[in-house]
């Protein structure tokens, strides 16, 4: 192995041990606890808890929310990164900081913004009520909040990647007569596919796991506007620990799958990246 650092072997071992202990305490232990609590009473109660009508409806809603917001943010993220990295225009730096906004604003505040806009006493609330449209305390509100919270993920992943790749290949394609769409389809997309998948994966994990913003706009109507994270909270507050941890273990499972997929992608990604020279 190549050694470019000068730390002594002992120091390296100490540092690695600290990192491992930290990971075990803050990541592995809670994960084990979640699955342990969920299966405490055996597999039967676990299955009952996750197939209860309210749990099933929470799972369905969560999947629906992800199915709507992830594709939206995929399109938005690609469009924004394409615009930012391949073109020069006024207000570019403003757009870049806008993309980061959801990361810098507390999710609860994000949720409140939507209540302020679409709630009964909000700016467009009365108009919505007149036309019998429900946004807050209904599915559209949850979708809006989730889209807002998760929109940086794809763009943040793609912008540095596309910046590094430059625009030579796109220029070569259009100089050979390709249309904008052909250029995107045949040149840009293959170059960014691993980064894009990675961004989508993170976006999806967050869309399914978002609590704060969704909690504000959802209204916690059982069987209607409860997503999985909200359902976990309700069960927990009702002292239904097996139920709460059972649903929580599904979310934790999603996290694990995401983590594995992310590792695989990173590996492919680097492989691809290093084959470029």
């Amino acid at each position: 192995m190549r050694r470019s650092t000068t730390e002594s072997r002992a120091l390296q071992i100490v540092l690695i041990a600290i990192a491992l202990l930290f990971l075990a305490f803050f990541l592995a232990l809670p994960l084990i606890a979640v699955f342990g609590e969920a299966l405490k009473a055996g597999f039967g109660p676990f299955l009952d808890a996750v197939t209860a009508p309210d749990a099933l409806s929470a799972i369905k809603l969560t999947l629906l929310i992800a199915a709507i917001s992830v594709p939206l943010n995929l399109v938005f993220g690609v469009a924004a990164s394409w615009a930012i990295t391949k073109f020069q225009f006024r207000g570019k730096s403003l757009l870049i900081s806008m993309i980061d906004l959801p990361f810098s604003v507390s999710p609860v505040v994000s949720g409140l913004i939507f209540v302020l806009l679409f709630g009964a006493s909000g700016w467009v609330g009365p108009w919505l009520a007149e036309h019998d449209l429900k946004i807050i305390f209904a599915v559209p509100g949850i979708v809006l909040a989730t889209v807002f919270i998760t929109f940086p993920f794809v763009a943040r992943e793609l912008i540095p990647l596309m910046m590094e790749q430059g625009k030579d290949e796109e220029e070569a394609a259009i100089s050979l007569g390709a249309s904008g769409w052909q250029t995107f389809r045949h040149v840009t997309l293959p170059n960014i596919r691993w980064g894009l998948l990675y961004g989508v994966l993170l976006c999806n994990a967050r869309a399914m796991g978002e609590f704060g913003a969704v909690s504000v706009v959802s209204g916690h109507i059982r069987g209607e506007t409860n997503t999985m994270p909200l359902h976990v909270e309700i069960l927990y507050n009702e002292y239904d620990f097996v139920g709460a941890f059972a649903v929580a273990s599904l979310l934790a499972g999603l996290a694990l799958v995401t983590l594995i997929a992310k590792t695989v992608l990173e590996w492919r990604f680097n492989l691809h990246g290093s084959a470029r020279h």
Binding site: D168, E169, A172, H186, N191, A275
Partner: peptide
């Protein structure tokens, strides 16, 4: 192009 810009 200077850096060839081949489609990798």
């Amino acid at each position: 192009f200077q850096q060839y810009a081949l489609f990798k």
